[in-house]
Design a protein around this nucleic acid. Structure first.
Length: 291
DNA sequence: TCTGTCTCCTGAGAGC
DNA sequence: TGCTCTCAGGAGACAG
């Protein structure tokens, strides 16, 4: 599930292979949940455009085009953005992964989940957007336009501070984890990094936001920065479907302390990691290290 | 205004 | 073996 680190890694990988190229063809699937801008409008808007640069806003990728429009991509839960030349078992079903030998897990062929295929004037590799569960979002921003989805985003998670978290938590009655997941407060944090940051800060996910002290807010902001930077360094987390545009898996999943480790021993104290539901999301924590 | 719930979607895995 | 059910989760819509 792509969160800020995975989106940032995707941005860094895509920049050298996409910037400066002119889109010569756009293929899409039929209208569906992923197309905020209808497929026809997307095809018309992208055709013939050159990509000037790629920015990131929270979990959104922003492809800046030469006509001053912006192609906005959100990877949702299972979104994958990659070059047509890559090979990765993560682009296959689990059955194919389990049954096919590695040498037969050859180059990916677009399937029904491949919602956009960008071809280029230079005849180099195509770029695919694939999303099995269709929780991703694709839309085109007109010149100077601001979409409500982007406008409501809070401070980027890589810029979060203790005072910001402390101030935001004063007027809220929700659990601290729900606050971290609220993109209007901090943009870019999802379930994995919320759990990991709360572990490093020693705060339980279900704790009421308003009970966070200044010192804990400071520790939490430092923990958020620490886990996000470390995840970017290691290429993100490839727990389920995430794969970088170059076909590489991330490695941060090997460094997790709590997320999806229910029943396993805490790496610090040995206590059993607990799972409970907070804000309708699974939350994992160590009952000894976090209070 | 804030909070909680429902909804969208589909593959994986558990249970029978 | 095959069917059914549950779960996973980002974020918008909606109700209270």
């Amino acid at each position: 599930m792509p969160e800020l680190p995975e989106v940032e890694v995707t941005r860094r990988c895509l920049t050298p292979v996409l910037v400066g190229r002119t889109i010569a063809s756009v293929k899409t699937t039929a209208p569906s949940y992923v197309f905020v801008t209808a497929p026809l409008g997307l095809r018309k808007g992208l055709m013939g455009r050159r990509v000037l640069r790629i920015d990131r806003l929270g979990k959104y990728l922003l492809l800046r085009l030469d006509d001053e429009k912006t192609f906005v991509i959100h990877l949702g839960m299972t979104g994958q953005l990659f070059s047509s030349s890559v090979t990765s078992p993560r682009l296959l079903s689990s059955t194919a992964r389990a049954t096919l030998p590695p040498e037969d897990q050859t180059r990916f062929e677009p399937d029904s989940h491949t919602h956009v295929i960008l071809g280029f004037e230079d005849s180099g590799s195509d770029i695919y957007f694939r999303d099995v569960r269709k929780f991703g979002k694709l839309f085109l921003l007109p010149k100077g336009g601001i979409h409500a989805r982007l406008e409501r985003l809070g401070i980027d998670a890589l810029k979060v501070t203790g005072p910001h978290l402390y101030k935001a938590s004063r007027k809220r009655k929700v659990a601290i984890k729900a606050l971290l997941l609220d993109q209007a407060v901090v943009s870019g944090i999802g379930n994995i990094y919320a759990d990991e940051a709360l572990f490093l800060a020693g705060v339980r996910p279900g704790r009421g936001s308003s009970r966070l002290t200044r010192a804990e807010s400071e520790r939490l902001s430092e923990a958020v920065l620490s886990v996000l930077h470390r995840s970017i360094e290691t290429g993100g987390s490839s727990i389920s479907d995430y794969v970088a545009p170059n076909g590489q898996d991330g490695a941060y999943q090997d460094e997790r302390h709590v997320y999806a480790r229910k029943g396993e021993p805490c790496k610090v104290c040995g206590a059993v990691i607990v799972r409970r539901v907070v804000a309708q999301r699974s939350a994992h924590y160590c009952p000894t290290c976090q209070s």
